[in-house]
Design a protein around this nucleic acid. Sequence first.
DNA 1: TAAACGTGGCG
DNA 2: TCGCCAAGTTT
Length: 348
Amino acid sequence: MTAVASHAPELRTALLDWYDSHARSLPWRAPPGSTARTDPYRVWLSEVMLQQTTVPHATPYFERFTARWPTVVNLAAVEDSDLMAAWAGLGYYARARNLLACARAVANDHGGVFPDTEAALLALPGVGAYTAAAVAAIAFDRPANVVDGNVERVVSRLFAVQTPLPAARPELKRLAATLVADDRPGDWAQALMDLGSTVCRPKSPLCLMCPISGFCAARAEGQPDRYPVKAAKAARPHRQGIAWVLRDGQGRVALVRRPDKGLLGGMVGLPTSDWAEEVPDATPPAGADWADAGAIEHVFTHFSLTLGVRVAQGSGGDFLWTPEAEALNALPTVFAKALVRGLESSPE
DNA sequence: TAAACGTGGCG
DNA sequence: TCGCCAAGTTT
């Protein structure tokens, strides 16, 4: 038996039954089968935070955000710099800029109420195909085709899809659509994702625990972890740069606001050289007596970085002079690491 | 369409 | 130690 369309009803029943007893309990989630709809604001916020991000990493951010800003209207009123600081450490900072733009769009253009259709959600900043479908299904009970990385993996195994990712995306989405129905759309989406996360895992899938293994073509072949097939990835280049830790001797450090576009866009950062293949021959930001504080290593999605750290004392200049403890909290991780290195190397 | 875009945990 | 990977979106 495989996951052909004629078996969809039995497959759906098996997975929804499994979800009734195995659903993960998560702060943004209603219990399975709950008729009380989850707050669209919390669903949307969790979905954005969870993009390319693990549940354990996103969870404390979700708790802090919802405690500080209980509604989308509260969030819409936040200063940009406060929002960016609150997102620091979570990564993919374009999400934070779009999150704020989306909250303001809902507050200003939708009367503070999230739109309840997939198409209207899709028009919001930072809401793509996945997030629009997820919010429509989970918050509004729309039978949307919710396809994330988990669903792609589950479907690729159910149907033993040979096409490598990412080229297989459209095919996987079409196949996923054959399993969507009007009954319990939100639970269906979350059941598929929970299965992918806890049972149909990337490595060492737990087929003996799987409620739909009987429908799975990859399981029948005997090597389910062969799926999804993936295209080879390009090697990650390495870059080098210098970051300057300029201190005023009174507990403050010089930061700069980075441009909205590009890497770490909209975040505060340390003053830096360009980051290039060769160690740059760069001019420090002030005529101070710079000491070498070593270097830190950091890995981004598309390159790795050796960042040399230099420390000096100074004042003035066109900087955001920020208390060191506050800076540590507001900086993206790469700069927080560099600042720690600088502070350790020249304790006051 | 492919590339840009962070971070931390795990095998 | 290090590549893989996690609830993607934008340009």
